[in-house]
């Protein structure tokens, strides 16, 4: 993807082994993050996250739907990621499809938990309005506007911000109006319920280059990786999803070490993200 000369490759590798990366960061430093919320008025919630030159938008749309017959006590949530060709020419046509699927799957794994719904970041049972009849369908869409590495972490952060910006309209249901079929539903324009985001994890991707691992790799650094592991950690320090993103095999002890490093970094990143989201919320309230 990235054309680099031998000199440049050596420079990146050498820098990482000496804990000083090409942009002056240390191995475990993130790039400056900026969060904007409420960027898409059409959506119930939205956020834009910039992590250095990586720029992503997440939007949350909620629609009324019917719970699936197998899980009548749960709402539904779907996560899709789109890699726009405006970010890179290789995303044109079907080119971005593989990356989009990979990112969507990784996010689904991190946010939706196991089959029974245990350990999910998004509590699907909170989306039910009338059991077996009416529920919220949450459509979470991520868009990659500009890509400079570490897309998964940026997307997860954007989704977290977008969900904390999400207000679901208050619903009043008239069960008596229709007995058998869909009950009559009335949406309120004024009252909104805040979506609970306390369980939403953050994703930390550790990229292994040489003998060391770095966080928040740029695309130049990603092109030099031997392997990468994405770990999602929630506020309680529990691991709630993990994917190895290809590359060479790793010794089990290295993976365990990566998990513990990711865990300690995640708590810092979580608090940085929380304060950014709070600042963005304050900024939006000022505008309004």
């Amino acid at each position: 993807m990235v054309g680099l000369s031998i000199g440049e490759k050596k420079f990146i590798q050498g820098g990482i082994s000496q804990d000083l990366r090409a942009d002056g960061r240390q191995r475990r430093d993130f790039r400056p993050i900026s969060v904007e919320i409420g960027v898409i008025p059409q959506a119930n919630g939205s956020a834009r996250v910039k992590l250095g030159a990586t720029d992503v938008i997440a939007s949350v749309k909620a629609e009324l739907g019917r719970p699936s017959s197998l899980q009548p006590d749960k709402g539904k949530a779907a996560i899709f990621v789109d890699c726009s060709p405006t970010a890179a020419p290789i995303f044109e046509g079907r080119g971005g499809e593989e990356l989009s699927t990979e990112l969507s799957l990784a996010l689904q794994r991190c946010l939706l938990g196991g089959k029974s719904g245990a350990g999910a970041g998004i509590d699907l049972s909170s989306l039910v309005i009338v059991e077996g009849k009416v529920c919220w369908d949450l459509y979470i869409d991520g868009l990659v506007v500009s890509s400079d590495g570490n897309l998964l972490d940026a997307l997860a952060a954007a989704i977290k911000a977008a969900l904390s910006n999400t207000g679901l309209p208050k619903v009043s249901v008239d069960l008596a109006a229709a007995k058998d079929d869909q009950p009559e539903v009335d949406l309120s324009d004024e009252e909104f319920l805040q979506f609970d985001t306390s369980g939403i994890p953050v994703v930390i991707t550790l990229t292994k280059i040489g003998r060391h691992y770095i966080v928040d790799a740029t695309s130049e650094e990603e092109s030099q990786m031997s392997s990468a592991v994405s770990v999602s950690v929630n506020r309680r320090g529990q691991i709630c999803g993990m994917t190895k993103r290809g590359g060479a095999g790793l010794d089990p002890s290295v993976i365990l070490d990566m998990i513990s490093v990711a865990k300690s970094i995640s708590q810092q990143f979580m608090s940085v993200l929380d304060s950014e989201i709070a600042a963005a919320e304050a900024a939006e309230a000022d505008d309004a």
């Binding site: 794994r109 938990g113 196991g114 245990a118 350990g119 592991v229 929630n234 529990q238 691991i239 709630c240 999803g241 993990m242 994917t243 190895k244 060479a248 095999g249 790793l250 010794d251 089990p252 993976i255």
Partner: peptide, 10 residues
């Protein structure tokens, strides 16, 4: 060596 590892749930 581990070549792939995926994990869901908490």
């Amino acid at each position: 060596e581990i070549t792939q590892l995926t994990l869901t749930g908490e």
